[in-house]
Every structure is written in structure tokens, then in C-alpha cells.
Design a protein around this nucleic acid. Structure first.
Length: 219
DNA sequence: CACCAGGCAAGTA
DNA sequence: TACTTGCATGGT
């Protein structure tokens, strides 16, 4: 069972890598920028997130030390292009407050803790759910927690590889239970699946032209 | 015009 | 546990 899953996942990975090339995610300069981007992209097109990131940079708010001292009233208008700006400004502040109060402002120390403890603490922050937490762990903390995003779910359920109503945690376990915890592999596979989603499974009922269409894992 | 985008929390039954 | 709804701008 696990062996067959692993073979399927490896063959998908190799095929997408050959077709699309290495993605080298996450598109950010610093760990803090990854975290901010992960929150801003919740149910939001990345193109709009880029506008907010650019706004933050021009306002000098793209570092932990500057942003954690900025009031929400200053933050919210800057985040306007990526939507839900009142919610997201509170979420980012809630995260910064945890780092300030529980980790004395040491973001690197926070990110270097044991992966499962890190995941639990991230999930306890209001505004950080499972996908955002796993994105932060995989790309900001550089620890191997598999990220399940909407495209991963869509691609796997449309091919009939998993049930369409599978939960986030169960789909994450689908990957993590049969794969070695390989940071670079988790990063690249997630990036390739999102790229595939952007190109072939966006605004469409089926992945008709998806490179995985008709794929059965035998390749 | 309607619908969607790299979710999440809070409310309801 | 399993739905439903609000959050909000910008692209197709």
C-alpha cells in the first residue's frame, strides 16, 4: 500500500519535473517574508499578494522588528490589494505577538524548535490553519512538513487517487506516511503541484489538458 | 455580470 | 462531527 503510493508519487514528481522544470520555491527573500506571504495568500491569488508585499517593502514593514511595532490601523491599508485586509492584518499581528511574548522576539529560535511542537504552536495562533502552518514549516523553518493546498487536493481527487471529501490531515498523512521526510523533495513536489494547478486545473471542472491526465502511476 | 483565487474562524445543528 | 457564512480585492 505505502509502496504503491510512493511509486505513484515519485512517478508524478519525475514527470512534472521533466515537463515544468525545477520551481525552487518559496518566492521570498527571508523567512519572515515567507510567513507574511503564507498568511496573505489565504484564498487569494498570488498576484495580489505580490502587490501587498511590495507595499510592505516600500513602507519598511517587511521585517519582524518593524512590523511587530506597527499598529493594525497602519498595517491594514497596506494590505488592501490582497483582500481580507482587516482579518489579515490582525492575523499577522497575532503571530508577531506570539514571537514577542513567548520567544522574546527571536523568530529564528521559534522556527528551529522541534517540528511537531512548532506545528502545534503555529496552529494555536488565530489565523494560522493547517495549510498556512505547513507552508511556514516547510519554507520558513526548512523542516519537512508536507503542505496540502487546494491544487494538491483537486489533482489527487480528480484522478481518483483519494476520496473527494478527504480531510486536510488525512491527505497530509497520505503523503507523509509513505515518504521519507525529505525537505527538498517536499518543497519541490508541492511547488510542482501548485504550478500544475495554476496552468491546468484553475477555473475548470476537470484537468483535461493536465500533464497528469490519464496518469495511472505505471510510468 | 458571475465566479474564482496557493484559507480560516465562528456559528449552527 | 459536519455543514454554512463572513471576510474583500482584483483578474477572467
Amino acid at each position: 500500500m505505502n509502496h504503491q503510493r510512493r511509486e505513484l508519487i515519485f512517478s508524478i514528481f519525475q514527470h512534472l519535473l521533466a515537463v515544468l522544470g525545477p520551481q525552487n520555491w518559496w518566492p521570498a527573500e527571508t523567512a519572515f517574508e515567507v510567513i507574511v506571504g503564507a498568511i496573505l495568500t489565504q484564498n487569494t491569488a498570488w498576484k495580489n499578494v505580490e502587490k501587498s508585499i511590495a507595499n510592505l517593502r516600500s513602507h519598511g514593514l517587511l521585517t519582524f522588528d518593524s512590523l511587530c511595532h506597527a499598529p493594525i490601523a497602519e498595517l491594514a491599508p497596506v494590505l488592501r490589494p490582497s483582500g481580507y485586509y482587516n482579518q489579515k492584518s490582525r492575523k499577522i499581528k497575532a503571530f508577531c505577538d506570539v514571537i514577542e511574548e513567548r520567544w522574546q522576539g527571536d523568530l529564528a529560535l521559534f522556527l528551529s524548535q522541534d517540528m511537531n511542537l512548532l506545528r502545534s504552536e503555529l496552529l494555536s495562533v488565530s489565523g494560522i490553519g493547517p495549510e498556512t502552518a505547513d507552508s511556514i514549516i516547510l519554507y520558513a523553518a526548512a523542516q519537512p512538513s508536507f503542505v496540502v493546498d487546494t491544487y494538491t487536493h483537486r489533482i489527487f481527487m480528480r484522478h481518483g487517487w483519494v476520496a473527494d471529501n478527504i480531510s486536510y490531515e488525512d491527505l497530509r498523512e497520505y503523503f507523509m506516511s509513505c515518504l521519507a521526510p525529505d525537505l527538498k523533495f517536499f518543497q519541490e513536489l508541492h511547488a510542482l503541484l501548485v504550478r500544475t494547478g495554476h496552468l491546468f486545473c484553475r477555473r475548470k471542472p476537470l484537468c483535461v489538458s493536465c500533464p497528469l491526465s490519464g496518469w495511472n502511476g505505471a510510468g
